[in-house]
Design a protein around this nucleic acid. Structure first.
Lengths: 343, 343
DNA sequence: ATGAAAGCGCTAACAT
DNA sequence: ATGTTAGCGCTTTCAT
């Protein structure tokens, strides 16, 4: 424990100047003679002086800290995102406060309030289960914010979004092309913004193919492996005609796959399955999972870049970025023998 | 944007008292008459006043923030840990600063310095690649710290550790019991503390069985799926006698498994494989992976509990906790037909 | 029970 | 080019 810190006063005293001059040096401001600047810098390195971010924050109302709000950091989707966020933040000397909401809507507002209290310079939020109005209100407290996978109905705000309608459309069309006509959708949480948009793509593809989907073909669930298992069991029971599934995300798809295999169904012969996100797991399960690739880490990086632009009032950078998902075809739809397994 | 915050002075003015009295109320201190306390509380709720943690930190040298340092948050091992950490921290009104080192030793020291500058109340570190001396020096700056999966050679400090010697021993013994005699170890990074201890367990088991291991049976690698693939290829080439593998962690094991399968080897008939950690993936790959179960999320929770005890000078709670790993036997060693697959 | 004053370490005017 | 003076919003003595 080394709690005795060198302060700006100590440095000033040692340098025989006022602490203001030291402040100028550490902030690289002009109006300091070269000689005193050098002298002060020498003393700074000798003493190991480092300015207190807290005192600085109190004086400037800036913290060099951003908040990251995720539903579940142990979900590979969000941990990849977090990695991208942390990376770019670190590169810009920003720190990241991590907040996990556990899919709990009230806790979402709670952590946002906390982050606001902490005077973070901005927040990146994703996967929030909050309705537009309260979310908008909560986010408006911040100097800057970027949403991931979310858009307000009435207003464009900085965001990184995947074209999920397209993703749902690509996935469903792929299944249609393979000859399937009864295609189910395991939809994730009803409150998921992305889930709803993927549903739209799914419906669009079916409509174009002239297929009338039964309402029961859509089954909501928690976005986990267990949720997928439960959901597929319901679908199999209530709608045995279904021969193919589009799933909210890869975890759900893998759950569905597991349960099908456990029930003795073959994949893709008896049930073709498409996931979403393309997490590492998708290539490792057997059969490998056809899925929509989403560049999560990159989305995290871009979110930080955008957020910092907003914080620095570079308004031109604060738009919505739309990422185009890409269908990656693997054996869970194309058959083990004919499988085209991309890594 | 709502940057105009209510301060303690505003509340005091509205209440017609000095701001000191308000301070007493918000800190639940005595010496305030019940009536004024009530009056002030009412004004606080009405105005939505919330004390500034920054100003508070400046005055108290406490931040209610802890640092979490991990090599790679996108690694499921560490994201599970992070989840446990965040959960308990949140429950105690602590915030978590997440720092990713990317397995980069110099960055480890860098983030620790940053966390120190930020005046975090304590840090939890795991998977650090740092040698004892510099790490000890870096950690000594903090009011409190807890290490996960690490112990100093010369000194007991607060830590959560898995009995990795036991884990390595259990895994290897299991393979020996199945009749294997040429057992390789894919060891992860040479700088991994846990890796070294698992090696000890592996060696102990072999020694007890009277088996003289060839030095080449141990292959180091990066702790990822790709690392496992590379390592197993080397082992298969240089030591074709090997019929079973103990792996540093599940990711490595899955990489090894993948490469073996790709080369047409059957698992476990041609190569039995044991992993470590029991991440979700282990149950989802095919065949499911035999592995040593480690309760990661719980370790994260315990680390925070311990850290907070240390911060609050409850020295009796600041010891080393040793977690006992448990071997979970699945089909990657026991054979597809006789498989005992625990979920 | 309440208030006044000093100070936490720094930045941002405003002098000189 | 350098120093002086206020704060930033709060906690902690010390008075009253």
């Amino acid at each position: 424990m080394n709690r005795q810190r060198v302060t700006i006063n100590d440095v000033a005293r040692l340098a025989g100047v006022s602490y203001q001059t030291v402040s100028r040096v550490i902030n690289n401001k002009p109006n300091v003679s070269n000689s005193t600047r050098k002298r002060i810098q020498k003393i700074i390195t000798e003493t190991g002086y480092r300015p207190s971010p807290i005192a600085r924050s109190l004086a400037t109302a800036r913290t060099a800290t951003i908040g990251l709000v995720v539903p579940d950091i142990s979900n590979p989707y969000f941990s990849a995102l977090a990695r991208g966020v942390e990376q770019v933040a670190y590169a810009h000397n920003y720190s990241v406060l991590l907040c996990n909401t556990g899919e709990d809507a009230s806790r979402e507002l709670d952590v946002l309030r906390t982050l606001d209290e902490m005077y973070v310079d901005g927040v990146i939020v994703c996967g929030l289960r909050q309705a537009d109005a309260p979310l908008q209100q909560a986010l408006d407290c911040f100097r800057a914010f970027v949403m991931i996978n979310r858009r307000f109905a009435n207003k464009v705000t900085p965001a990184i979004n995947v074209d999920d309608v397209l993703g749902g459309y690509l996935a469903t069309t792929h299944l249609l092309d393979l000859g399937h006509t009864a295609i189910g959708y395991i939809a994730g949480p009803t409150t998921s913004f992305s889930g709803v948009r993927r549903l739209k793509g799914y419906e669009k593809a079916l409509a174009e193919a002239g297929i009338h989907r039964k309402p029961g073909w859509v089954q909501y669930c928690t976005p986990t492996v267990a949720g997928g298992e439960t959901a597929v069991r319901l679908l199999n029971t209530n709608h045995p005609e279904i021969s193919a599934l589009f799933c909210y995300n890869d975890l759900v798809a893998i759950g569905a796959m597991r349960d099908c295999l456990a029930q003795g169904r073959r994949i893709p012969e008896d049930m073709a399955i498409v996931g979403y996100d393309d997490i590492m797991l998708a290539t490792l399960v057997s059969p490998p999972l056809t899925t929509c690739h989403v560049p999560r880490e990159e989305m995290g990086s871009q979110a930080v870049t955008m957020l910092l632009s907003c914080i620095n009032d570079e308004a031109n950078m604060c738009n919505e970025i739309i990422i185009t998902p890409e269908l990656v075809i693997r054996a869970s739809t194309l058959g083990t023998n004919t499988a085209v397994t991309k890594p």
